[in-house]
């Protein structure tokens, strides 16, 4: 049975089981490369989604500008009809003026009723003219707002276009980064003699091993380490054996070569 309290340096078999530092560095490089690759792929994906969103935004802004232009036509029509109404009211006012003049010429006794009606019609048409003038003023204000709306929609559309173009450039940069990462992977493979999947497995095993060592160090300062050893040894012993066997196989194959 292997004694756990012996350090790595005290156990020759354990020493043999240590990985080559270059290989470990390669494994770390592969790990970093893997993370960079995943991030770059994710960034490309996110850029694509953002581009799609921007396209939708652009079409919405375009629709907004179109609606606004239709609104402009409606407002123009409204103003034209209000102007026609004002013209008609002016005519009524004129008729009332002439009727009043006719009634006045007839004299107080016979023309009084005509004058009263003319005065009433004139007052009503004047009030109508005030309302129409107010209506035209409101339409003019709405036209100003509508013009601003069209300008804002067009500006937003142009900004969305700029943003889409920048996103496309970013996506191209990310594709370049992906290609560079691919080249980097091949270079690390050539330099280390390891393939990416093996290197990643090695890195994962090294991480687990480090975690195990850390946990064991924690146990060594505990008061109940005997109990812990008794409980842990059956679980850890097969692992140590497997590691020793791997190390022995490696050294045998190296000596044969």
């Amino acid at each position: 049975m292997v004694e756990l309290n012996k350090g790595a340096g005290e156990n020759p078999n354990f020493e043999a089981s240590h990985a080559d530092p270059d290989e470990l560095s390669s494994a770390l490089l592969f790990g970093a490369h893997h993370v960079a690759l995943k991030s770059a792929q994710q960034a490309v994906e996110q850029c694509g989604k953002a581009n799609q969103g921007l396209q939708q935004c652009r079409s919405q802004f375009e629709a907004c500008a179109d609606q606004s232009r239709r609104l402009e036509v409606r407002l123009r029509d409204t103003r034209a009809s209000a102007t026609q109404l004002a013209d008609a009211l002016e005519r009524i006012k004129l008729v009332a003026l002439n009727t009043g003049l006719e009634g006045a010429r007839l004299g107080e006794s016979s023309g009084k009723a005509l004058v009263a009606i003319a005065e009433e019609v004139r007052n009503l048409s004047a009030r109508g003219l005030d309302v129409v003038a107010n209506h035209i003023r409101l339409v003019e204000e709405a036209e100003v707002e509508q013009t601003k709306l069209v300008q804002a929609a067009e500006l937003a559309q142009s900004l969305a276009m700029d943003l889409a173009s920048q996103l496309r450039q970013t996506q191209e940069c990310q594709f370049d980064a992906l290609a560079s990462l691919d080249m980097l992977e091949k270079a690390i493979e050539r330099a280390s003699g390891l393939d990416a999947s093996t290197a990643l497995e090695v890195q994962r095993v090294a991480e687990h091993g480090q975690g195990l060592l850390n946990a064991l160090e924690g146990l060594s300062v505990s008061r109940r380490q005997k109990i812990a050893r008794t409980l842990l040894l059956p679980a850890v012993e097969p692992l140590l054996r497997a590691l020793l066997n791997t190390a022995q196989m490696d050294s045998t194959s190296e000596s044969e070569q």
Partner: peptide, 14 residues
């Protein structure tokens, strides 16, 4: 018959 321009008619009657 003479026409006069430049006036703004306001009211008519007695």
């Amino acid at each position: 018959t003479i026409a006069v321009s430049g006036l703004e008619p306001l009211k008519s009657g007695i």
